[in-house]
């Protein structure tokens, strides 16, 4: 039962990843691309982590997985912010 749930979560996560990647390729400008990528990836990774956490018996490993998710979220949101800031500044021509 848990295995099926885990498989479902992982698949869903992958779907978000794919959607994010397509968005990266297809969307018209930087901001919407960033939007697609970070949002999709963070949710995708979250689902993935949840799925994997279900599969393990060791709560310590599950904790580590969650930690990874948090780290990636922090890093990706920070970098998205930086990229967007940079792009805006360039647009303003400073």
């Amino acid at each position: 039962m848990t295995e099926i749930l885990a498989a479902l979560l992982v698949t869903l996560g992958l779907a978000f990843f794919i959607a994010g990647s397509i968005g990266l390729l297809r969307l018209p400008d930087l901001y919407s691309r960033l939007h697609a990528l970070t949002k999709a990836d963070n949710v995708g990774l979250g689902l993935l982590v949840m799925g994997l956490a279900l599969l393990t018996d060791d709560p310590f490993i599950a904790l580590k997985l969650v930690l990874i998710w948090l780290l990636v979220m922090a890093a990706s949101s920070a970098s998205a912010h930086l990229i967007a800031q940079r792009a805006r500044r360039r647009e303003r021509g400073t």
Partner: peptide, 15 residues
């Protein structure tokens, strides 16, 4: 760095 990056780095470094 701006507050976002500085904050991230401050959190990340001890980790």
């Amino acid at each position: 760095a701006g507050p976002v990056l500085a904050g991230l780095v401050q959190w990340l470094t001890p980790l």
